[in-house]
Design a protein around this nucleic acid. Structure first.
Lengths: 262, 262
DNA sequence: GTCTTCCGGCGACTTAAGTCGTCGTCAATG
DNA sequence: CATTGACGACGACTTAAGTCGCCGGAAGAC
């Protein structure tokens, strides 16, 4: 699929609703079907689930839950975007995941019975479905295919956490930012004569929270990339001029020449 | 259970073998039964699994697998200790998990079909069982109780990763070290008239790799705790003199007084 | 026993990360 | 149109983190 950034993210929550057939907005079954581990279910199972589910609407920046809250059901994102994050007492935050339509939020407490391990809030106006814990657990017990699919979902999140730990512990801010840009370019980039272009809706603040640093450092490092001719910044858009150099920033800046120690 | 450190860890791998009935060393069924998600199985299922399993012995410091290797089965720790870690090209490493008897290593690639997300090596002489992927997946499909228990295991690991990310991103080295000591004190500490005592077998190097820093900083921060009268160090032992102060190191050193900004 | 190696402990230094204050721009608001 | 507020940029500064070299003691090897 040739990377079509036709649906930019942050600003246009309302556009979603215009582009989507009305049913898709109202029909919880469609929302459930977009969840990978429910997709395998026959229609009548989905129906049954849908009958038990509640709806929650959130305005931008509204909190969904806070770290430590008890949890009594699974949340399915129907529209919008939810950030899951940890917050320091200094106010700084670290984003653990951003979940959009078809994702579920914090499966953990549903399955291990604990409280939410992090807080969550809406990045845009959002709609979520709520499935009582019991129904989800019953379903898993009856249908091991679903359980296995949930394991896969958890595994994929786990892999991300693994690489996040690696980067936070062993890599510098410039690496993390380079990887962030590379990933965006691969996911949303379009080849033009000027380079690979993609939209960048979030603020430096938000980027910082994703890659584990502060606003200022994102700004400084972006500028450094611009100065070195690796990227070009426009309005709310990035143009990657030198993808090879961007990749090599990810691989290793860290005094790459020191060879072996004697 | 009044915290009995009767089985210190690193040095005494051989003691294990003396204290344990010989059968427990040789019998794979016993080893499998110690795994939480196999414990629920009836004896004949365990038998069947055990018949298919291979054995792998590792000397201390021997590699079990490297990041990116393909994986074709589940590894169950029967005896010893395995560290799972990421390594930077500078040689620095970040430990993601330490698994002992009754734990499994890298369930991820078994269930999502990918490669190992990190490397693993033996911290002590160790014995592992190997269960072919097929058998494990078949078992999960047949028995959703096992699948659900695996989800719980993954969830618990996930929670740890979550807090690791939080600490790496938002907390200082002294916090992480304080938490490390507190956790050890709770898990292995014994109340004596001098304070709460527990063994500390690992080197500063290893502690650093666990909490995400280098040898030197572990040493410096330990010393600082000693100077402030929070702990006392002996041979390979720690005595916590002021648990309250240790806890408050965890909660927040970070200019705790700044109140609100105007 | 003696030798060697590993480990811990300094102290001095470098550098990445983060903080702060200010200013200019842009966009939304009234 | 004017005001306000957010955001990005930038320079100067502070501090935590990490690096380096050296020493001295303890444990293991011979």
């Amino acid at each position: 699929m040739g990377a079509n950034p036709g649906k930019p993210q942050g600003l246009l929550a309302s556009a979603d609703q215009h582009n989507m057939p009305l049913m898709a907005i109202l029909d919880p079954i469609e929302a459930l079907r977009r969840v990978p581990f429910f997709a395998v279910l026959p229609a009548e199972e989905l129906d049954a689930l849908a009958r038990h589910c509640g709806v929650r609407r959130l305005a931008k920046d509204e909190m969904l839950f806070a770290e430590g809250d008890p949890c009594d059901g699974l949340l399915v994102v129907q529209a919008g975007a939810i950030k899951v994050f940890k917050m320091a007492d200094t106010g700084r935050e670290q984003i653990l995941a951003i979940d959009r339509a078809g994702s579920t939020v914090s499966e953990l407490p549903v399955f291990d019975g604990g409280t939410y391990p992090a807080s969550a809030a809406a990045l845009e106006d959002s709609t979520l479905l709520f499935l009582p814990k019991r129904d989800v657990l019953d379903l898993c017990t009856r249908n091991s295919e679903v359980a296995l699919a949930i394991i896969k979902t958890l595994a994929s999140r786990f892999r991300y956490m693994t690489s996040l730990v690696e980067e936070l512990s062993l890599k510098e801010v410039s690496h993390r930012l380079a990887r962030f840009l590379r990933d965006r370019a691969l996911a949303f980039g379009v080849r033009t004569r000027r380079g690979i272009e993609f939209p960048l809706e979030e603020t430096n603040q938000e980027i910082g929270a994703e890659i584990g640093t502060v606003r200022d450092l994102v700004s400084r490092n972006l500028r450094r990339f611009v100065d070195r001719g690796i990227i070009k910044l426009e309005r709310r858009k990035v143009i990657v001029l030198d993808m090879a150099e961007l990749e090599s920033q990810i691989a290793g800046t860290k005094r790459a020449g020191t060879s072996e120690r004697p």
